[in-house]
Design a protein around this nucleic acid. Structure first.
Lengths: 127, 127
DNA sequence: CTTAATTTGCGAATCATTCGCAGAATCATT
DNA sequence: AATGATTCTGCGAATGATTCGCAAATTAAG
């Protein structure tokens, strides 16, 4: 895999993700594409999602039913606030984590290297 | 399902979890049980893990390979600090989250209802 | 427009997890 | 400690998401 081709199917998948701004599974994306008569195979949807996640342009999350879902997001380190009503995902920066890191070190003798976080609630628009 | 029977296989699965103190998949637990000549079927391991997770006595996490893994933990709300060396999991209380919640409200107009967190690093014993 | 490299689509293969059901274990009562 | 009602277990088959293999189609570049 020397270079990476920019192809129609890949752009179609990316476009859906950019448009929706919420966590979508491969199957859902495939369904949305079919609705608008853009025939991209399910395999290609999967491959494209892996690619995007690998480049850090999308982030993955396994939902309650065990399906892996993806959202577009920027590449800096951050976290997601997921609205329980509309599903929309907002990026959240994470300075606050610093205080958690020092508490971990103090109380648990634990040296923090990495962390995962996810927030659920109601977004401004849905209130 | 009126009452719940206390059975050998269930206790054997719980015992492994209590002993290991780290995230284990159903298959791993099944393997560990076989090694010590305790034959519990894989189905029963799965069923027992669901039960424990349902009662809040264990908590589940999908690992990088897509397998669901479980640890024992107490029932109060808390988070996990996972050691990257030995895999051991420590419970971490979460007062620090309060400050994150207010920041979310202020900066993003987001009303926090729930959250997930997971920490990775090196535990005191492994340093 | 040719060629070499990468992608696609299809169906088949994988892998974790769930189900169905007959037989075994458990519990509460005699 | 024997009985009966209920809940478990084990097995193999079924499911469902994801991955693979490979031939045909696209892409980038000369």
């Amino acid at each position: 895999m020397r270079t990476q081709y920019s192809t129609r199917p890949r752009e179609q998948v990316s476009a859906i993700l950019k448009r929706e701004q919420r966590y979508l599974s491969a199957a859902e994306i495939h369904g949305l594409l079919r609705k608008s008569r853009q025939n991209v195979s399910l395999s290609t949807v999967y491959r494209t999602l892996d690619l995007l996640a690998g480049k850090g342009e999308a982030s993955a999350r396994v939902d309650a039913g065990g399906e892996t879902t993806y959202v577009v997001c920027d590449q800096t380190h951050h976290h997601h606030a997921v609205c329980r009503k509309c599903g929309k995902v907002q990026d959240v920066s994470c300075e606050a984590i610093e205080s958690v890191a020092s508490a971990l070190r103090t109380h648990h003798g634990f040296k923090l290297a990495d962390h995962e976080m996810q927030f659920f609630g109601t977004c401004g628009a849905c209130k």
